[in-house]
Design a protein around this nucleic acid. Structure first.
Lengths: 111, 111
DNA sequence: GGCACCTGCTAACATTTCTTTGCATGTCCG
DNA sequence: CGGACATGCAAAGAAATGTTAGCAGGTGCC
């Protein structure tokens, strides 16, 4: 994961609603409307947050059709483990894109 | 660390400038004006970011007087290690303050 | 058909965050 | 004293985020 990606993931997690979403999905996967009721927030709002979580690679979606024919989008958390220490951040900083330039990185290191 | 604190720390780290600041200080402590020149950003802007980093407990400041009598504020990174996994977030979620209520927590567990 | 459930979108407003600009203080040195 | 350093703060504009409201589509069942 490069610096830009890390910033994106951190920005995504820095929100109470999204933490609640991940917590709920960690306990049990769920579909959008159900999850909205569980968390007590509006469905459009939840969708926005789910989209961000998915864009950051923290959750995955899968369309399924229930027995009674309703199309439902199930979400579940992806396994991830990010360690935050000064050293890790120092390494991430080296792959941050500079204001003017295009995206940084280059090395497809991985994990 | 409770859920609210975690959100605050994550929000603080979710910024390229602040990652650069931590990276620079991890290599060597520095005073404000010097650091601003190193990073190529304005001093007032850097001060704002330093204040946030300090508020989140990620860096510490110490006023010192140089040999030639100039008062300088030296910053250095605090050691920290935060692990981010679905399980950790699920635990953090339980200590998030609810929209209406006052700050959550209660347990003074500490690091 | 009409109601209850599922999905998707986006325009608009409200709020927060980021950044710049400007002015205040103080020291030392020529 | 005036210039080159250091510190501090706050107002104000610009940009990004969060949230609501309202619209569209689909299925199954009484």
């Amino acid at each position: 994961m490069n610096g830009d990606e890390l910033v994106r993931v951190l920005a995504t997690l820095a929100n109470p609603h999204r933490i609640r979403v991940i917590a709920a999905l960690a306990r049990e996967r769920a579909y959008v409307s159900e999850l909205a009721r569980t968390l007590g927030i509006s469905r459009p709002l939840l969708q926005v947050h789910l989209r961000k979580l998915e864009a950051a690679g923290l959750v995955s979606a899968r369309m399924e059709v229930s027995e009674d024919g309703k199309a439902m989008k199930f979400y579940e958390v992806n396994a991830f483990a990010i360690e935050l220490t000064p050293e890790v951040l120092e390494a991430a900083e080296r792959t941050l894109s500079t204001p003017g330039e295009g995206p940084g990185d280059g090395t497809k290191g991985s994990s």
